[in-house]
Design a protein around this nucleic acid. Structure first.
Length: 532
RNA sequence: GCCGGGUUACCAUAGCCUGGUAGGGGGCAGGCCUGCUGAGCCUGUGGCCCACGUGGCCUCGCGGGUUCAAAUCCCGCACCCGGCGCCA
């Protein structure tokens, strides 16, 4: 397995430049001879899962889904919020863009260049235009711009420098210029536009919803604040409306999520886009923190704002913070961890995941090899209490056209064929890897816990050793080696019994200072004779 | 916006105040010792170069500075984490 080598690649880019290395870079990419597995099921993101449920629920309550504009002109905020607009806009992101370099080379610019003492011919102008185009496409780097301009105009460097600094300051200092466009901070900003457009096109009552993102210019993201989060928002426009419908809609919306304690309170000071006294907040009781958490906001839009959009009917708006609800439902205290687990969640493996990460370091690949592995295990266990010196033939047969005999043996006088730990199983418990017999050793707490509450991998020490021996025999047959003799004595590390961990599992164990305890006497000898 | 803490090899860290060989642990690798179960001991473990040595150079987030000498002191930057403020 060859991997990409970031250090080497960056070193080459530094020496040879981006363009040259880029052209050759496809050769670095390791290619696979197998095709990718496209079966199985992945895990969904909890936020999208919740959004899906909310959408489904809105639809079943008779609301139509709308894709609302995300980019909103600053002016709309003034129309909706009136005098409150500046403090709303303070929390908004404004869009900015880089100024377009003047590729067209206007007459004014040409005139300015002439004033600097450059004689402009048609061919020079088109050469200069070409330089600008290349620059914009990134084929000329900023460092080389002056040089290229001086070549195009056939002038000395210092003159080219003057041209860029005086005639085209935008080339040397590309600074983003703000626009009056903002990213919506509330779904309401978009609802006014949508309602304005639909009010005479669809029959009342109009029931619309959207579950989508909104943006807040937070100083910093913390456990309860994100810059981008979702609002499950709906509006109702009808000839007559009662604000109490907000509570009914909220209760109906949250019904599929089981018994939730809800409380609604009228806001003493309502926001300016609502009519005074007609804005309510909804709280959900969070049993884990034993606190009421604000999740919903609803109210009836104020007639001034409506009038500025020519709206002739009252509008009720309900907005629910999706991430807030998710935190309660998923019992999570940090919204960052919930939404961006890839950045914030600690590396955590369940015992099952850790157990799955334990594997043989080498394994037999041929059917015969696997057969040998099985008989080593079977025969060794059958004679495990035999007293040495002794040996047992465990396999005799052909492997890749050569005859192979395999023996398990014990040379030591008075010792049993297998050591006491040979039949130990590997258990995983609380992030620790523990080797232990199926019975006994209860006086050691870790073993007791691992056996009672941990996961048994069904891998024994003897399995690891047998796998190693079988693989070595295969290798010996292929390379023409005549004998294989493997003695495993005391096990101390996983590799002693031919076991290994994936890199992620190892990182998990070292990260959390977990233990790998597999010490034990294996004392197993296997000998193989290979002849033609 | 204000204030504080952090960034050291595969992992988690010590060292910084008071400048002078980057230390201990885990993991991994090798060796020793281990004969019936919880276990020890030694060595190695960032990169590059070569004349292959008891060799040289680089490396403590990035970039500068001070100094004979910088992980350490000073300045700037980036990212991360806290506290306060803001949170319609």
């Amino acid at each position: 397995m060859t991997r990409l080598r970031p250090d080497e690649i960056l070193e080459r880019v530094k020496k040879e430049g981006f363009e040259k290395v880029w052209k050759e870079s496809s050769i670095f990419i390791p290619r696979s001879s197998r095709s990718l597995d496209l079966s199985g099921r992945g895990s969904p993101h909890p936020i999208y899962e919740l959004i899906q449920k909310l959408r489904e629920r809105f639809l079943s309550l008779g609301f139509d889904e709308i894709f609302n504009p995300i980019i909103i002109e600053e002016n709309e905020i003034y129309r909706q919020y009136g005098p409150e607009a500046p403090i709303i806009l303070d929390r908004c992101y404004y869009l900015a863009g880089l100024p377009r370099p003047d590729i067209g080379l206007s007459k004014t610019k040409c005139e300015e260049i002439r004033k600097l003492g450059v004689e402009l011919t048609d061919s020079r102008i088109s050469a200069l235009k070409k330089v600008f185009r290349e620059y914009k496409k990134g084929r000329i780097e900023p460092d080389d711009l002056i040089e290229k301009i001086s070549e195009a105009l056939e002038i000395p460097d210092h003159l080219a420098m003057n041209i860029t600094s005086q005639v085209f300051p935008e080339f040397s200092m590309l600074k983003p210029e703000p626009s009056k466009l903002t990213l919506r901070s509330h779904m309401t900003s978009a609802w006014f536009l949508t309602l304005q457009s639909l009010q005479h096109k669809r029959e009342l009552p109009l029931k619309l919803f959207s579950v989508d993102v909104r943006f807040r210019r937070e100083q910093r993201e913390d456990a309860t604040h994100l810059r981008v989060h979702h609002s499950a928002s709906c509006v109702v426009m009808d000839e007559e409306l009662n604000v109490e419908e907000g509570e009914r809609i909220t209760r109906a919306l949250l019904e599929p999520f089981g018994p939730i304690k809800l409380r609604f309170i009228r806001k003493k000071v309502s926001s300016k886009y609502y009519a005074p006294g007609m804005e309510y907040e909804g709280f959900i009781y969070d049993p884990s923190s034993k606190r009421w958490i604000e999740v919903v906001d609803y109210g009836i839009y104020n007639p001034i704002s409506l009038a500025r959009y020519g709206l002739e009917y009252p509008v009720l708006n309900v907005g629910l913070g999706v991430e807030r609800l998710a935190m309660i439902l998923y019992n999570e205290t940090d919204v960052r961890r919930l939404v961006y687990p890839q950045f914030y969640a600690e590396l955590l493996l369940t015992d099952q995941e850790l157990a799955d990460a334990i594997r043989f370091e080498v394994e037999p690949v041929t059917d015969r090899g696997k057969e040998i592995m099985k008989s080593i295990i079977f025969e060794s266990l059958r004679h495990k209490n035999a007293i040495g010196p002794c040996q047992f033939l465990v396999y005799k047969g052909e492997v890749l056209g050569k005859s192979v005999e395999v023996y398990v043996y014990e040379n030591e006088k008075g010792a049993t064929l297998l050591g006491a730990a040979a039949e130990n199983y590997i258990f995983v418990y609380d992030g620790n890897i523990v080797g232990a017999p199926k019975k006994g050793m209860d006086e050691i707490q870790m073993i007791k816990d691992a056996r009672e509450r941990g996961i048994c991998t069904n891998i024994r020490y003897i399995d690891g050793v047998a796998s190693l021996v079988a693989a070595k025999i295969e290798e010996a047959v292929k390379s023409g080696v005549k004998t294989v003799n493997i003695r495993v004595r005391m096990a101390r590390r996983l590799s002693d019994i031919n076991l290994g961990l994936s890199g992620i599992a190892r990182r998990f164990i070292t990260n959390w200072k977990k233990k790998i305890i597999i010490t034990g006497p294996v004392f197993m000898g296997v000998y193989a004779k290979i002849s033609d």
